[in-house]
């Protein structure tokens, strides 16, 4: 399911509007602080999953290093706000930028490779990032991590100070950020750069023959992806208010990867569906709490086998097949 990002059909627009309204009202619909906390995690990890889908879904390369950039963004924002007293509104974009620049540094050697080699190298780089963070004790406080990271505060003249230090307040902050990210990714896909990235995935030789410089566009895509991952990391840092080197662990990459692959790697809604399933569903099925990651490993393999494009596209295909039974058939046979 390739989303026609410049012209959304009316039915889809209505669906998005409904989802938006539910999202805004969600805090009122859920019973209590813990579920709201889960929703905040969903929003933050949804942002991370979206960043990963740019590379895994739209560019079509497997990167195993996303956690490294998540950690870079988290630490960058933490250090800027704790050590340099930067307000969140500056440390957040700075974290994204630092993470994105790190992404370019990693991408330059890594994109000389493809496939499993690229995957291994990006994994290696994220482990290096973790090692450096752990051992640069004078800057990062080492394995102890950084705590007492301030919550974002909004101090506008003539208005009361807003502190984003509760699940409720942070929910709306994270929601705004996720929506902004969705907007940016959609606009990216509609742009010349986005079309080039997808062309590289679909047929790299053809893309080259029409003038698309593979290396340049891959690095551009990686910058955008790691920028967003860094922003997600910064959000996490200011929500949980503690960061440790564990943020660079493969765990976060695997989780994001599961979200993206199970939900649907090549669509925006897929990444979000995957994030939702991964963060919210285990709570509903309490009994799998301990075995959560195990269950998701099984789900990952099952979905690779039976729903290779992910749950999102599978649902969309079902929906369009149902609607075609009632309406005129088009010659669109999308897979």
């Amino acid at each position: 399911m390739k989303e026609d990002v410049v012209r959304t059909n009316p039915r889809r627009a209505v669906l998005y509007a409904v989802v938006f309204m539910i999202a805004c009202a969600a805090p009122l619909l859920v019973p209590g602080g813990y579920f709201l906390h889960l929703l905040v995690l969903f929003l933050i990890f949804g942002t991370l999953a979206l960043s990963l889908s740019i590379i895994v879904g739209f560019l079509g390369e497997l990167t195993l290093g996303q956690a490294g950039f998540f950690a870079v963004g988290a630490y960058a924002s933490a250090l800027l706000s704790v050590d340099q007293n930067w307000p969140f509104w500056f440390s957040l974009p700075a974290a994204g930028l630092i993470s994105g620049l790190t992404g370019i540094l990693v991408g330059i050697p890594s994109f000389r490779l493809q496939g499993p080699y690229f995957a291994i190298v990006t994994l290696g780089f994220s482990q290096i990032i973790g090692l450096v963070i752990t051992n640069s004790i004078s800057i990062t406080r080492g394995p102890m991590g950084i705590s007492r990271i301030p919550a974002p505060t909004l101090d506008l003249p003539m208005l009361p100070t807003v502190r984003f230090n509760t699940e409720l307040s942070f929910y709306y902050l994270a929601l705004a950020l996720l929506l902004a990210t969705v907007y940016v990714v959609r606009r990216l896909l509609a742009s010349r750069t986005g079309h080039a990235i997808v062309a590289i995935r679909e047929n790299a030789a053809l893309a080259q023959s029409v003038g698309i410089d593979l290396y340049r566009y891959k690095i551009t895509a990686f910058f955008i992806s790691t920028f967003i991952a860094g922003i997600a990391g910064a959000m996490y840092a200011h929500y949980v208010r503690v960061v440790t080197p564990h943020l660079a662990d493969v765990y976060y990459t695997s989780s994001a990867l599961i979200m993206v692959v199970v939900g649907g790697a090549a669509t925006i809604s897929g990444a979000l569906i995957g994030a939702f399933i991964f963060t919210i569903v285990p709570e509903i099925l309490r009994f799998i709490e301990d075995a959560r990651l195990l269950v998701f490993g099984v789900i990952l393999i099952l979905s690779i086998h039976y729903m290779p494009k992910g749950i999102g596209p599978a649902i969309a295909q079902l929906a369009s097949r149902l609607s075609r039974r009632t309406g005129p058939s088009s010659d669109e046979v999308r897979k």
């Binding site: 497997l62 499993p116 990867l257 990651l293 393999i301």
Partner: peptide
């Protein structure tokens, strides 16, 4: 490759 990652997690 993704499947082996899944195996690893499991």
């Amino acid at each position: 490759l993704l499947a082996t990652l899944g195996l690893s997690i499991i």
